[in-house]
Amino acid sequence: MNIFRLAGDMTHLMSVLVLLLKIHTIKSCAGKSYPCSLCFILLESSSGISLKTQELYALVFATRYLDIFTDFISVYNTIMKLIFLGSSFSIVWYIRRHKIVRRSYDKDQDTFRHFFLVLPCLLLALIINEKFTFKEVLWTFSLYLEAVAILPQLILLQRTRNIDNLTGQYVFLLGAYRALYILNWIYRYFTEPHYVHWITWISGLVQTLLYADFFYYYFSSLKNNVKLKLPA
């Protein structure tokens, strides 16, 4: 474990917590007897969260952590895997099933056919992998899928007029975690002999590059202290 990977995991955890906070806000808001102004805005405007991206991430974790009960690495590793699995599936459940949260989900805008991401990633994992076994192919699939899982969310943000802070912070933290992982891979490459994993590295690089334009607009909005807006 090195500082870059720990920072990356904490950033990833933060992104999940921000999303859960946002869902809690929507839930508690609608529970009020009087429609406060914030509540009214929250419930009327779409949450800006892409269910498609959340479903892709649940699939990423489900295929990434197949070995959670077979290969014990550390308590930290197991706990974090359980947190990511539990949070990603519960977020999908909230947006799909929860009577209040689902109202803030704008399915007409979140139209990305994520099936078009799943299939190519699966085919690619069957062709390019480190070992042609069931677990290894699915693990490789989860790396390819995670690299593109943010696309439905980024496209939804372009369509969303006013991106609220929590959603913007969620996407930022999600992008930052993989950028920190790249630093972790560089660190491990120079400190551990034989630590070479091209598939992981290239997938992580592609994933981070997909956030490049979002990072640009995110930092610009911070610098100019204006509302985050992605060009359509």
């Binding site: 990977r5 990833h12 290969d71 690495i73 070992k131 972790n184 551990e192 034989h194």
Partner: peptide, 10 residues
Amino acid sequence: PSNESAKDEL
């Protein structure tokens, strides 16, 4: 090289 080392990450 054991590719298990890649599996110790999340």
